[in-house]
């Protein structure tokens, strides 16, 4: 779920904008020039995956994959997510211009943490890869939902009702996301394990 313009108090919108600019600057520094096309690939895939709907009972949910982006890119994930969100708001009006910083924090911080988690714990076996990948995928969404709730709650007690609903809406997504991420990681481990190494230069 993307926060749209006008929801957050101006101080929160500006503050999160500045914070995400700072993290993005750090993320750009971590990214070598020759890796940029690959970051662009994941940016575009992040965008496309938000259009992939997974059926769930009578409705369907679309994937968010902050966790997977982190798994694939490591420190460059924040940049990919910021740009993916920018393009989403430019093309589709998902999210908004003034809420871009907040949205980037909401998805980008989980991506960074999940990338770190995956790098530390992934081990060598497929089983462990899949387990940690699923954990990163589900955890990323859960963390994103928590951050969303925190941001919404910054509007004051009048926003608590909306916050609870948003949290509730993320619970099924969290399960779907974790499982799909686990399967994706398992697929990548079998087909192209160098993509999971997070060393973009070596992956080519």
């Amino acid at each position: 779920m993307h926060i749209s313009d006008g929801v957050l108090p101006i101080s929160v919108a500006l503050g999160s904008g500045v914070a995400s600019l700072a993290i993005a600057a750090w993320s750009v520094k971590q990214t070598a020039n020759e890796d940029l096309p690959k970051v662009a690939v994941v940016t575009a895939s992040f965008f496309v995956s938000s259009l992939i709907h997974v059926p769930l009972g009578p409705t369907s949910v679309h994937l968010l994959i902050p966790g997977l982006v982190g798994v694939l890119l490591g420190p460059a994930a924040f940049l990919a997510i910021l740009l993916g969100l920018l393009l989403q708001s430019l093309l589709f009006q998902f999210g908004g211009l003034t809420a871009l910083g907040a949205n980037a924090l909401m998805m980008g911080i989980p991506a960074l943490l999940c990338g770190l988690l995956f790098k530390r714990l992934r081990g060598d076996t497929q089983k462990q890869h899949v387990l940690v990948g699923g954990l990163a995928g589900g955890g990323g969404t859960l963390l994103a939902a928590a951050l969303l709730a925190l941001l919404l709650a910054s509007g004051g007690e009048d926003f608590f009702g909306v916050m609870k609903l948003a949290l509730l809406a993320h619970l099924p997504v969290f399960v779907v996301e974790g499982l799909v991420s686990a399967f994706t990681v398992s697929f990548l481990f079998r087909v192209k394990p160098e993509l999971l190494a997070q060393q973009l230069g070596a992956a080519s």
Binding site: P37, K38, S49, L63, L179, T184, K192, L195
Partner: peptide, 26 residues
Amino acid sequence: RRTSMQTLRVMGNYLGMLFVRSFERT
């Protein structure tokens, strides 16, 4: 597409394949 483990596995592989193909093409 159904609400089942099978569907989720296929979607996971689908996403993985999308990544692999995109990386190679890029």
